[in-house]
Design a protein around this nucleic acid. Sequence first.
DNA 1: TGAGTGATTGACT
DNA 2: GTCAATCACTCAT
Length: 189
Amino acid sequence: MTEHNHFSGLTISVAKKLLGSILIHDSTEGKTSGIIVEVEAYLANDPASHSYRGKTKRNEPMFGKEGTAYVYFTYGMHHCFNVVTGPKGIGEAVLIRALEPLEGIDLMKKRRKQNKIEQLCNGPAKLVQAMGIGKEHNTKDLREGKLRIEWKEPPQEKQIVTTTRIGIKKGAEQALRFYLTNSPFISKK
DNA sequence: TGAGTGATTGACT
DNA sequence: GTCAATCACTCAT
């Protein structure tokens, strides 16, 4: 499969393929990267998805080209980072929930004011902070640029745990959360 | 367990 | 136009 096609296809399969791949950010402060160990899929016609009620100014990036970033602000103080999937015009994305820190760990510690490695990126707003991601990355292409995905071989199906999603009210029963078995870096067991 | 925080949304004039 | 409820979270208690 070509690099171009990694982001296309069913959102659920893209979500699974993202597990084990590397998220990299070359910031002015330094480089940070981490292995993606936990994701959630947000689909069209999904009550929990921002895109559920159609395109708005806020969620417009979700309807953009696959392989771009959707960074949103929530709860008055947190950002979350999504990878837009699906063809243009379809509002689907994968929320990155947790990373296993790889490079730039000292920088992550400084940004997070947190010294425990397993506490650096084990939540969607935490990894955004540790990686130095901000709303300036919204709609940016993840195939190139400072913030990008480096694809690895997807994990075996048996290494992927599928469960219900976390922290949402609507559509919470759908099993669209995926994480790597035995990773100490996931947000919640 | 619950406070903090602000953008977004839907239900009203 | 206004106003109140909602929210895919984190941290301190």
